[in-house]
Write a protein that binds this DNA or RNA. Structure first.
Length: 707
DNA sequence: CATAGCCGCCTTTTT
DNA sequence: GGCGGCTATG
């Protein structure tokens, strides 16, 4: 089958594909055909007689897993190899060995929003102030501990300073709450799976024998618990093949440990190392620039980036007035590409550092009626109506899921208010029962009057009724719950506001129907656990014929003819939060490197002079990375002819007292002017109150005549 | 008990 | 510029 494709592989790719036994490290640069290598490798394993179910490939995202499955099937191989993310794999393992892992297999998976609620409760239960122990930071700290497989007991022994001792208590309580709710967060999935494998040699051996060949993609972004899981899974055979690129490691903040890939040869001393250094994707000048940039990283293994293509158009580096002008220009350029060069819209992408930047772009795309698609993972499942409906489903599977229960007990409003809930919770706390069990014993709660009791009874009856039906198809169950819970009515009553919500719900029901059709053994538990991990309904669809807008992080693994990277400014890229940490600064540089190397043909990098961040307009400076690229930034082409055009070589002079108007700040009075030729600075006291020093060549001030 | 409106914290990136 | 949580009001 894929024999015919053998000739398409380069010598190094062949080494990575056909050398089968033992540990292997594939150091694959951007655009080196890594995906092809992995799929061919799986195909060649199957070809040489390995049964598909003995192969396990681990990808970074669900999307990547899907694609890989499709590609392997397309090569003519029988399906059946296990291809998934670490998290999905762990869910599967934990459910299979639930008893040994000491979990119930009906567990809920808590996302960030659920986690926040639990950590707040935990801090409160510890009688600490959330102002001194901010939930977000506590979660980060706990996440870091879990990623390093430090459980409460271990941390308790280590904790010796004031903060750590408090953190131990919060950590312990947080885990307690999760256990009471029969829930796990993302980090728990990994940690519990790792502990299961390490503490139960038989389980470890069983799985290691089942997955005789393990492949881990994006190995540079694995964290410590994933590393330990990997070690355990290959302990019986060491048939491990990892692929990755240290220069594309961009998930440090999430616990990714670049040392995993850097130390691979130490961990597996007989490892074979294959380097894929040829790049088949990008024009030579793009690679040259990317290489120049990444060379500024100190903590790095030297690596070559060998172009196989010729020069493309010059890389553009543009400076704009503000994010609106930047976005408009992007749209204008896309129009030109489309009309003059006949580029398809799905061959174009715009990357940015933070999600909030998508707004300005979106506005410009809408204004120009240009089809676009925002690629953002969690969006869909974050919508209120979706979360509500899913909460109903979760309760059926896992009645202990208090987060879900509290979410829906009065959604839509059914007369069960705050006081009632508090009294029930009080009863639940003084008896060793869960919140849901307290609901069932509502009769015994003396502090409640007749009316609320009846309401609660009605609610419990409804849930029990739903539960009886929860063994059938997920889609029809979801649909009937939507109708019978009153959610549908409340959305319909909301008028036009509820319209898009209704559409979203039908999208959810569609996805459930899809699941019913395609799952190996469909069940509600399985569906819920899957969608908790697969939060990607909005995932990028290249066939949609729209321009893709996404963060630089989401851009990993993709490629486009034309790439725009916007907001390349100090404070944004590198993000200001990385300033005081050299490692993080290097990661920011890698982020830009990843973005640049997505481009096949043309690359346009831009920054602005002013940017509105959280409602505040700030003066911004080009990113230091732009200077490292050593490409002279071009002042933006004039987009408008309305206001007084200023030629760069004849900048105006100002004198104190002169009244001027600024595009965004409005009118003001010049306080000072320093003549430095092209770099002249004017200080203006604006009527709104603020005083600003502006570069004359950027500021585009209009002089008020007569002053 | 429900709702509207206000305050404060927030978001850098995601499985 | 937005959301969650809190408060005042009907």
């Amino acid at each position: 089958m894929h024999r015919s494709l053998y000739d398409q592989l380069t010598p190094s790719q062949r080494k990575a594909v056909f050398h089968i036994d033992g540990p292997m490290l594939v150091l694959a640069g951007p655009g080196s055909g890594k995906t092809r290598v992995i799929t061919h490798r799986i195909a060649s394993l199957i070809d040489s007689g390995i049964r598909p179910q003995n192969i396990c490939a681990i990808t970074f995202t669900n999307k990547a897993a899907d694609e890989m499955r499709q590609r392997v099937t397309a090569l003519g191989c029988t399906a059946g190899s296990h291809i998934s993310t670490f998290h999905s794999l762990c869910v599967r393992i934990l459910r299979q060995y639930a008893a040994k892992a000491q979990v119930k297999n009906s567990f809920s998976i808590y996302d960030t929003a659920d986690q926040r609620k639990c950590i707040k409760q935990a801090v409160k239960d510890c009688e600490l102030e959330t102002s001194n122990f901010p939930p977000a930071r506590m979660l980060n700290a706990i996440s870091a501990l879990k990623n390093n497989l430090i459980d409460v007991e271990t941390f308790n022994v280590q904790a010796d300073d004031f903060f750590s001792k408090r953190l131990v208590r919060i950590y312990q309580r947080y885990q307690g709450i999760l256990t009471e709710h029969n829930a796990m967060d993302f980090d728990d999935l990994l940690m519990k799976a790792a502990f299961l494998l390490e503490r139960h040699p038989k389980v470890c051996e069983e799985l290691s024998r089942r997955f005789r060949f393990l492949l881990v993609d994006e190995y540079q972004d694995t964290n410590h618990s994933q590393y330990r899981i990997t070690r355990a899974l290959v302990s019986a055979h060491n048939n491990i093949c990892v692929t990755g690129d240290p220069d594309q490691s961009i998930y440090r903040w999430r616990g990714a440990d670049i040392r995993n890939i850097l130390a691979f040869e130490k961990d597996w001393p007989d490892a074979k190392v294959v380097r894929l250094e040829e790049n088949f994707r990008s024009a030579a000048n793009i690679l040259e620039a990317a290489d120049k940039l990444i060379s500024f990283n100190q903590n790095r293994r030297q690596k070559r980036l060998i172009p196989t293509r010729g020069l493309g158009p010059d890389i553009m580096v543009n400076v704009f007035e503000d994010e609106a002008a930047e976005a408009e220009s992007v749209v204008e350029q896309i129009k030109r590409l489309r009309e003059a060069e006949d580029v398809q819209l799905n061959e174009i992408a715009v990357f940015y550092r933070i999600n909030a930047q998508s707004r300005a772009l979106e506005e410009a795309f809408i204004k120009a009626n240009m089809p676009y698609q925002i690629v953002r993972g969690v969006e869909f499942y974050n919508r209120k109506e979706i979360r509500d409906l899913i909460a109903y489903l979760k309760i059926l599977v896992n009645p202990d899921d208090e987060i879900a229960l509290l979410r829906i007990i009065n959604t839509p409003a059914r007369g069960i208010g705050k006081t009632t809930i508090e009294r029930i919770a009080g009863y639940g706390a003084s008896h060793p029962i869960s919140f849901f069990d307290a609901l069932k014993r509502i009769e015994n709660i003396e502090s409640l009057s007749k009316n609320p009791k009846a309401k609660v009874e009605q609610f419990v009856r409804m849930i029990e009724k739903f539960r009886k039906r929860s063994t059938g198809r997920v889609a029809s169950l979801t649909e009937s719950i939507f109708a019978e819970s009153g959610l549908e009515k409340s959305l319909k009553d909301a008028g036009f506001e509820g319209e898009s919500a209704l559409e979203n719900v039908s999208e959810l029901i569609n996805s459930a129907a899809q699941y019913d059709k395609s799952a190996e053994s469909p069940s509600l538990v399985d569906y819920l656990q899957q969608i908790s991990l697969f939060s990607d309904v909005d995932v990028y669809d290249p066939s949609s014929g729209r321009v893709a807008l996404m963060t630089l992080h989401s851009a990993k693994g993709l490629e486009f003819e034309n790439v725009f990277i916007v907001g390349t400014e100090d404070g944004l890229l590198p993000h200001e939060r990385s300033y005081d940490d050299e490692d993080e600064m290097e990661e920011e540089r890698r982020l830009l490197f990843v973005g640049m190397t997505r481009a096949k043909n043309a690359l346009c990098i831009s920054c602005t002079r002013y940017r509105t961040i959280r409602g505040q307009q700030l003066r911004t400076m080009p990113s230091q990375f732009i200077y490292e690229l050593a490409i002279e930034p071009q002042p933006a082409e004039e987009q408008s002819t309305d206001d007084s055009k200023i030629a760069d070589n004849e900048l105006p002079h100002y004198r104190a007292g002169q009244v001027v108007i600024h595009k965004s700040f409005g009118p003001g009075v010049v306080k000072n002017f320093v003549d430095m030729g092209q770099n002249s600075v004017v200080t203006v006291r604006f009527n709104k109150g603020q005083e600003k020093s502006l570069m004359v060549k950027f500021a585009r001030l209009t002089k008020m005549p007569g002053h």
